[in-house]
Design a protein around this nucleic acid. Structure first.
Length: 500
RNA sequence: GGCCCCAUCGUCUAGUGGCCUAGGACGCCGCCCUCUCACGGCGGUGACGCGGGUUCGACUCCCGCUGGGGCUACCA
């Protein structure tokens, strides 16, 4: 019916560590494209200047490659529809925003953040949908020109009808109806001139000739805005399918405070990429009764079935991943292959060199190496609440310190000894304790012992994901902070930051 | 609060009105194999959230409730 070649994309935002949900979404897009002999594109959505980093982009690409997914077009491999990095396409978005402005489908808005905030608070208090009230829509052309000439900062907003219904056709969910009156007049161009996701994603999907968009469920509620944009531009929108969000065991959205979420975590933990991808594939399309669950990528693509992609949010079941990974290790790896994987995993020459340098001054026999460095080759450590009794701090301070570590470490732009040391320093200051005393429980949580090779080096070597895992584990042992505690403790840190 | 999505064993799911006294996988339990453990084999535990309809017949269709989730930013 439609002779157009199938083109799908995954569009991660380089604002943090690669998320396993990104791999999940990428896999679906990959499978569909491959199954139809189409193209799978990787696009970087870095329109958030404040949060996007080149390092994050690099790591995300590396992580997706590690998973075994290859894209046909992308910022690193190029392609006929480039550039594939939104920050390099500013002029394109500007011209399309201008088009909307001219046609009256968008307008300049000079409202201050404070006014918007007050408006929303009032709307919510009145039990209404929070939605831009259209004040700047009442200004005359001259008034807009005047304000602009006066140097007033402004954003460009999408004009949304006050009445009528928008129908979003989801490939699996069917038609979803939204009253336009419940759709906000989204900002399309920020005051810094950068487009928001909404504008950029629509323009790019059109220009890059994307035919099918498989994306996370969190986008359902902004689909009407996107559809509106397509219609304003006179473009044919792509087919949409919203995939369920991966969940924590308590069914909430998978979050790194509670669970491993980073692709890098799985690598650091010693999962094989084939197993991870296989596990995700099982979440996308379950096997038939009696069919083997061990599937390589070609098999995953072959049996991919759009009609049977689930829409209920699955809990990410680590136990099942463990089982699958075990099968890969014992069924798919021959001895040389196994050795190679182990080498890639943890004993690269660089890593070994670094470990040796840290360990050598502290041992008397080579055989001391095993116990001293075992924690660097382990997943979960065998700790109990008693393990922390040798720490200098009181129980509450320990929990506070570890919990603050969990949040502080995630804020670090780069993961190295220096940054880690400063983070610990900040935590110590926030708690009014000495750094060395605060470091003690971290030694125990991370290395398994109060005496070990240097903590900060160990943490860098172990990687942020494994450190996070160990802190989570320690906190589980000592008592996971309640929501209230978490809030109180965080404020401790914030007030400290304000002083600095 | 408002808008939207979802709902089968603890978990992932099969099931698209009769094939279902609901099937498979992970987990858990037991037995077997075995120098330990693991693997492997065999068996077991265990679910259609609730209430109304529709129908000769509902896990399957409709409505309500309840529960869970997402969004509600000049973040994506």
């Amino acid at each position: 019916m439609n002779p157009t070649r199938v083109r799908t994309r995954v569009a991660p935002s380089p604002t943090g560590d690669p998320h396993v949900g990104t791999a999940y979404v990428a896999l679906v897009n990959y499978c569909f494209a491959r199954q139809h002999g189409g193209e799978f594109i990787l696009r970087i959505e870095d329109t958030d200047r404040a949060r996007s980093t080149a390092e994050s982009e690099r790591v995300i690409l590396e992580a997706l490659r590690w998973c075994g997914l290859e894209w046909d077009e992308g910022p690193d491999v190029g392609g006929p529809f480039g550039p594939y990095r939104q920050s390099e396409r500013s002029s394109i978005y500007a011209s399309y925003a201008e088009r909307l402005l001219v046609s009256g489908h968008a307008f300049k808005c000079f409202c201050t953040p404070q006014r918007l905030e007050e408006m929303r608070v009032a709307q919510r208090a009145a039990g209404l949908t929070s939605r831009y009230d259209g004040r700047c829509l009442t200004y005359s052309a001259q008034e807009v020109a005047q304000r602009e000439a006066a140097g007033e900062p402004f954003v460009v907003r999408l004009r949304v009808p006050d009445e009528g219904v928008c129908v979003v056709n989801d490939l699996r969910r069917g038609p979803i109806e939204f009253e336009y009156s419940s759709v906000d007049m989204q900002v399309l161009v920020k005051s810094d001139g950068m487009p928001t996701y909404h504008l950029a994603n629509v323009v790019d999907d059109h220009l890059m000739e994307i035919t099918h968009v498989f994306r996370g469920e969190e986008w359902v509620s902004s689909a009407p805005k996107h559809l509106l944009l397509y219609s304003y531009f006179g473009w044919q929108p792509p087919q949409l399918l919203h995939l369920p969000l991966l969940r924590n065991p308590d069914k909430s959205k998978l979050s790194k405070r509670k669970n491993p979420t980073g692709i890098l975590f799985f690598r650091a933990m010693g999962y094989l990429p084939e197993a991870l991808l296989n596990f995700l594939a099982l979440l996308v399309n379950a096997v038939r009764d009696g069919e083997d669950e061990l599937l390589d990528l070609p098999a995953i693509v072959r049996r991919f079935d759009l009609e049977h992609v689930p829409i209920g949010g699955p809990v990410f079941d680590l136990a099942k991943l463990d089982w699958l990974n075990g099968r890969y290790i014992r069924e798919r790896l021959d001895p040389p292959g196994f050795v190679q994987r182990v080498a890639e995993w943890a004993i690269s020459p660089e890593r070994l060199t670094r470990m040796a340098a840290l360990a050598a001054p502290r041992i008397e026999r080579l055989s001391d190496l095993g116990p001293l460095l075992a924690f660097l080759f382990s997943g979960r450590l065998a700790l109990t609440a008693q393990s922390f009794e040798s720490a200098k701090l009181d129980a509450l301070s320990i929990r506070r310190a570890l919990s603050l570590g969990l949040t502080e470490f995630d804020k670090l732009a780069t993961w190295n000894v220096f940054a880690i040391e400063r983070a610990i320093g900040r935590i110590a200051a926030a708690l009014g304790k000495k750094s060395r005393d605060v470091a003690r429980p971290f030694y125990i949580a991370i290395t398994g012992s109060p005496t070990s090779i240097p903590l900060y080096d160990s943490m860098e070597l172990l990687g942020r994901d494994l450190v996070r895992e160990r802190l989570r584990n320690a906190l589980d042992l000592l008592g996971t902070p309640s929501k209230r505690e978490l809030q109180e403790w965080e404020s401790l840190l914030q007030s400290d930051e304000a002083v600095v």
